[in-house]
Design a protein around this nucleic acid. Sequence first.
DNA 1: GTTATTTATTAAAGTACTTTAATTTTTTCC
DNA 2: GGAAAAAATTAAAGTACTTTAATAAATAAC
Lengths: 191, 191
Amino acid sequence: MKLLLQHISRHIQLDPTEEAYFLSLIQLKTIRKKEFLLKQGEICKTENFLLSGCMRTFKLNEQGEEQVVQFGIEDWWVGDLYSFLTQTPASYSIDALEDTVVAQITKENLDKLYEQVPKFDRFFRLILQNAFIAQQDRIHQNLSLTAEERYEEFVRRYPQLEQRVAQKHIASYLGITPVFLSMLRRKRVNG
Amino acid sequence: MKLLLQHISRHIQLDPTEEAYFLSLIQLKTIRKKEFLLKQGEICKTENFLLSGCMRTFKLNEQGEEQVVQFGIEDWWVGDLYSFLTQTPASYSIDALEDTVVAQITKENLDKLYEQVPKFDRFFRLILQNAFIAQQDRIHQNLSLTAEERYEEFVRRYPQLEQRVAQKHIASYLGITPVFLSMLRRKRVNG
DNA sequence: GTTATTTATTAAAGTACTTTAATTTTTTCC
DNA sequence: GGAAAAAATTAAAGTACTTTAATAAATAAC
């Protein structure tokens, strides 16, 4: 839980009362490997901050294939933001790739938090700014780089993930088939 | 300028003093068709709200081709957020596809605004939430749809843009060549 | 620890999309 | 309003990536 408070203190300063109030709105939850935090069609009841472990956010496309849109590790937020905000059925599923612990806040509690401690408007504005910038770069890369270049970028940017996550998930995240990713890796190793 | 105040009032309520203060921090600027609002390498000094016209945000890739990452029309914000926040050289260029009028706020003034009227933290949080959701959907679509399907989606979602913007820019936004887009369009018309 | 199951590799044939280049259409500009 | 420039169309050859299928390697399960 210290991890979450550290994460917040990087963006805003809380006094002890505010910190206590914030913590009173948070719940911990453990998700075992292969279990789901959220299933497509359910309502996303919480925003989730990863304290440990690794998760993936994905969507079934029309052919029933799983398309990974995001990974989450320690220090990252995961959730289906649209479903959370509108309390409508989720388009994304989220499951655990390792045993995972998350800190959760419900929409009701988050709304209270915004009213009681408006600094959190700023906090989430800052978080979203960073996420927006990262996503825009990713869109640019997806459109202008080859699969090979995207893979290089992925390895460079997330060396930990390359190790922790199955190749088929990385392939999906990059928008290519596992077969083709395997070819790229061989090419990389052999020269 | 009414457009901007309406846009804000959809998300937060300002009292007359706050509104006047906000307006005192805003400047209008006209950009003629083909002129630049921002050039890659310059520092992005303002966030920009489009009152009329149409702009494109793009980046030169390593082969020197222009990759369009976003269009902007009335009611949208444009800028290079990373360059704006860090006041470092921009990775993106922004130019006008039509004569355009924008309402601008500098980083200095926006920082003042956040301190004087903290509601704006909420305002931009809400704007960023929407942008984040839209981008996530776009990432998913870019990875899981064919070029033809992405084009269909684009036409469905932004019918106005399809009319207003040159095909080569739409092709770039979709991540395909103008030649291939032309083929898709013929196919669409002929059956 | 062995078996069953899932994941990664390899090869070969197929397809969506690109590249190049020539022609036509549309837009720009004095 | 006519010439020049830019954008869109068409066709043909080329390439990055997919699909299928068979085998090997790694992980899970009892």
